[in-house]
Simulated assay, not measured.
Amino acid sequence: MRVDETPVVLKLTEHERLSPDRSLDLVRHSPAGFEWGYTGSGPAQLACALLLDYFDDESVAHQYYIQFRNEVVSQLVCGGPADCWHLTGDDIEAALGGFQDRHAPTPDGGVASTSLPVNWSVVSRADRTVFQRQDIDHYVVLGDGSEEWLIILCSQGDRAYPAPLDHRTLPVETDPAPAVQELVAESNDLIEPDEEDT
């Protein structure tokens, strides 16, 4: 609900407010708090907080919060006599079940990555691995060089060649997964719309 125009999310079974604090330790889309009804940073923070609170599992929250925001939180509207929205545990479980059953391939045959948010898929090639967004032309390319990993976040857009947005280099003995996850999070942050534009 909104109290004096401020978004307030109540956990009715515990009779307490849902705080963004715990979710901010996992992702920092909106330190100012929650929102709903569109696909911006406030709804992303709420989606993460709801999944984290309900499932008490950081990996579940981190993997599915973007899709949960896009398909559930963006659709929430305050209404009825109490001028609020309601979301039940059954609603949350049904949405997550739908996400887990869906494995959308990338144009060149990739499948959903188990270690990244569900709007990303992975394609393995002989010389590199490509993580591709399903909702915008962002890619993270993981190349196995002779002495180091080169991990690049790039955007195809309307260009003939991909435009690099950021990159990381790591020794080959280092696990590249955390660096890939950092660039994926950076991509998610880059495309958040300004709240005043929604």
Rank of each mutant, 00 (worst) to 15 (best):
V3A: 10
E5V: 09
V9L: 08
L12Q: 11
H29E: 10
S30L: 04
G37L: 05
A44E: 04
L46M: 07
L50S: 02
L52C: 02
D53M: 00
D57I: 03
D57H: 05
D57K: 02
E58L: 02
A61S: 08
Q63N: 09
F68C: 02
V72K: 12
G79R: 15
G80H: 07
P81F: 13
A82H: 11
D83W: 03
L87E: 04
L87G: 07
G97F: 02
G98A: 08
A104V: 15
A104Y: 02
P105F: 05
P107L: 13
A112R: 14
S113C: 14
S115A: 12
P117A: 13
P117K: 01
V118L: 09
S124Y: 11
R128L: 10
Q132A: 15
Q132I: 10
D135S: 08
I136L: 13
I136R: 12
D137P: 15
D137K: 08
G143I: 08
L150F: 05
I151E: 00
R159I: 00
H167Q: 12
T169G: 02
P171M: 05
P178Y: 10
A179L: 07
A179R: 06
L183Q: 05
A185H: 12
E186I: 08
N188Y: 05
P193V: 11
E196P: 01
D197Q: 12
